[in-house]
Amino acid sequence: MTLIERIANAAVWIVAAATVVFLLTPLAVTVAVSFGSSAVFTLPAPGWSLRWYEAMGRSRDLWPAVATSVQLAALSTLVALALGALAAIGLLRGRFPGRDFVVTFLVSPLMLPGLVLGIAMLEAFRAAGLTHVWTSLVLAHVVITLPYVVRTVYAALSLFDFTLIDAARTLGLSYPKAVARVMVPALAPAFVTSGMFAFLASMDNYPISIFFTDAWTKTLPIKMLQYVEESPDPMIAAISTLLILFAVLVLVAGDRLVGLRRMADL
């Protein structure tokens, strides 16, 4: 390795390390503040305490919002998995004009600002006469989670050998059984990966959910913003820390079930 190559390699590692530190520093600060004893955001903290986690456990308004977010994320993820898998199969196996346009259109919510999507869906739902809060939230979250499923399953299907289904049918299996026993296990990593990212995207969504919630139905991100506006104490840091821990646990589960390298490939 020449001197120039060594310098370039060192520069790449330095930039990568600086980027990681830049991205992780706010998370580290949030975790540290959540264990502080001060009633305000202070670092370094005058003392260490679990008072904000205890306050979070005693909060009566927080847990209904958590339950709403979990139920909404689970339901929208299941719907997105079903629709996204069918759409990916149809797009890959189908031969029709404009197929590439449809693929791009289905993943377009990942490219557009959430505020733009929220306003567009709000106007569309009003024009359709849809005023039910839960139905509006589920449909809106399906729109933002569907791209994760379509993109991941479509990539996995492009690597799947469909002749295996024909081989299974020649061995006596019906077409549905051949799909269930051959294709579904092969695509299980794609379903797990896309489901995890879709669930996290739904749990963390604020700019779209704000258009469809009301005073009785609020998701966790909206409730967190309300805490920041009304009582900005470190309890919000404790909630954020638990959300960070939840995301880490999801990634660990994904690593156990699929593997991080395979998840990255998908």
Rank of each mutant, 00 (worst) to 15 (best):
P232R: 00
I210R: 05
L220T: 04
V228R: 09
Q226C: 09
P234Q: 01
Y227A: 03
A237G: 02
S240N: 09
S209M: 05
V228H: 01
D233E: 08
S231N: 06
F211L: 11
S209L: 05
A238M: 00
I236E: 03
S209C: 11
T219C: 06
Y227E: 03
M224F: 13
P221L: 14
K223Y: 05
T213Q: 14
I222T: 12
L243K: 14
D233N: 02
A237M: 03
D233G: 02
E230S: 06
M235L: 02
T219D: 14
L243Y: 12
I210S: 05
A237H: 00
S240Q: 09
S209D: 06
S240G: 13
L225T: 11
T213C: 10
E229R: 14
L220F: 03
I210V: 12
L242W: 10
T213L: 12
A215H: 15
S209A: 06
L242D: 12
I210W: 10
T241K: 11
I222V: 15
P234I: 01
I239N: 04
K218H: 15
L243I: 12
I239H: 08
T217K: 04
S209V: 12
K223I: 07
A237S: 03
K218R: 12
S209K: 03
L243A: 13
I222L: 10
T217Q: 06
L225A: 11
A238L: 04
Q226F: 12
I210A: 04
D233M: 01
F211P: 04
L220D: 10
T217H: 08
I222M: 05
L220P: 02
M224R: 05
I244R: 04
D214Q: 14
P221W: 13
D214F: 11
Q226D: 11
K218L: 13
K223L: 15
I244D: 09
K223D: 07
A215L: 13
Y227N: 07
E230V: 00
I236L: 00
I222C: 07
M235E: 01
K218G: 15
S240I: 07
L225Q: 13
I208A: 04
P232T: 00
P221E: 15
S240H: 09
P234S: 04
E229A: 11
T219H: 15
A215E: 13
F211T: 08
T241A: 02
S240A: 10
W216I: 15
E230M: 02
F211G: 10
M235P: 03
W216F: 13
A215D: 10
L220H: 03
I222R: 02
I239Q: 05
P234A: 04
I210T: 06
S240W: 09
D214V: 07
T241L: 04
I210H: 01
F212Y: 06
W216N: 09
I222Y: 15
I236N: 02
A238H: 01
P221C: 15
I210D: 09
